Amino acid sequence: MPVLDTEKPDRRRAFVADTTALILFFTTTGVINERFIAGMSWDQVLHARMLGAALMVPVGRPYGVWRDYVMRRAQSTNRLSQLLWDSVALVSFQVPIYSAIIAVSGASGRGLWLGVLGATVMMLVLGRPYGAFLNRVRRLFGLPPGGTRPMSLNT
């Protein structure tokens, strides 16, 4: 009789959960940064958000795996450690992608630099709130929180 591994999460559910969380959270924050910090027009913001949503589909789960890997360094009982490592994970993975999105969408020169700087600051500040949001979305999908082996690709 085969034994079912109850520790192994459904990969499709993990993909959908991580991608849904990324799209919901960062579509909202992206609009704020692009329009009010980078000074992009509403047409440029719409283009950036559509491009961003299309790119979030293939990067949602890889970011979730990256975050889980980075969060293994955080001390589970230390909120400052969790805040630091969640922010490191988000900035190191998302800022380069975001920079390319707004550049392709029309930001240039000073606006591009302000957008990248604004995104970096936002992601430093939003690292832990997004990590907590991601864990809540994962819980809604019946998955364990990140930073532990069961959410890795190798399980």
Results as ranks from 00 to 15, higher is better:
Glu34Ala: 14
Leu83Ile: 15
Ile101His: 00
Leu153Ser: 09
Phe36Lys: 07
Val91Thr: 11
Tyr130Val: 05
Val16Asn: 05
Met122His: 04
Val95Leu: 12
Gly118Asn: 01
His47Asn: 06
Asp18Glu: 13
Thr155Trp: 10
Ala38Arg: 00
Pro2Gln: 15
Asp18Gln: 09
Arg11Pro: 15
Met50Lys: 12
Gly127Cys: 13
Val3Glu: 14
Tyr98Ala: 11
Ala89Tyr: 05
Ser152Asn: 07
Pro129Ser: 13
Ile23Thr: 14
Ala132Val: 15
Ala103Leu: 14
Ala48Cys: 10
Leu24Asp: 05
Arg12Ile: 13
Ala100Asn: 02
Gly30Arg: 01
Gly109Gln: 14
Phe15Asn: 06
Trp113Lys: 04
Gly109Pro: 02
Leu46Arg: 10
Ala103His: 10
Gly127Pro: 07
Gly147Gln: 03
Asp18Phe: 03
Thr155Tyr: 12
Val121Asp: 00
Ala107Gln: 01
Thr6Asp: 09
Ala119Glu: 04
Leu134Gly: 11
Ala107Leu: 14
Ile97Gly: 01
Pro145Tyr: 08
Gln44Asn: 09
Val137Lys: 01
Met56Gln: 11
Trp113Gln: 07
His47Met: 15
Trp66Ser: 05
Pro144Asp: 03
Met56Thr: 10
Leu117His: 02
Tyr63Arg: 00
Ser76Leu: 11
Val121Arg: 01
Phe25Val: 05
Gly60Thr: 08
Leu46Met: 09
Leu80Arg: 14
Ser152Glu: 12
Leu117Lys: 00
Leu126Asn: 10
Trp42Cys: 03
Phe15His: 06
Leu4Lys: 14
Met151Lys: 03
Gly142Pro: 06
Lys8His: 09
Arg61Leu: 11
Gly52Ala: 07
Met1Gly: 11
Arg61His: 09
Trp113Cys: 09
Leu22Pro: 00
Asp68His: 09
Ile97Ser: 04
Thr20Ala: 14
Ile37Arg: 01
Val45Trp: 03
Pro96Phe: 03
Asn135Lys: 01
Gly127Leu: 07
Met1Ser: 11
Thr148Phe: 15
Phe15Pro: 05
Gln44Ile: 10
Asn33His: 14
Gly109Thr: 06
Phe141Val: 01
Phe25Met: 10
Leu90Thr: 06
Pro144His: 05
Ser92Asn: 04
Pro145Glu: 15
Met71Val: 13
Phe26Val: 00
Asp43Met: 11
Thr29His: 04
Trp66Met: 08
Pro62Phe: 04
Leu22His: 14
Phe15Arg: 04
Thr77Leu: 06
Pro9Leu: 05
Thr148Cys: 09
Val91Pro: 03
Ala74Phe: 01
Met56Cys: 09
Thr120Asp: 00
Arg13Phe: 12
Asp86Ser: 15
Arg139Cys: 13
Arg79Trp: 14
Thr120Asn: 02
Lys8Ile: 08
Arg72Lys: 12
Ala74Arg: 03
Arg128Pro: 02
Gly60Tyr: 06
Ala54Pro: 13
Arg79His: 13
Gly30Ala: 07
Ser92Trp: 11
Asn135Gly: 04
Arg11His: 13
Thr120Lys: 00
Ala132Phe: 12
Ala107Tyr: 12
Val70Pro: 03
Pro96Gly: 10
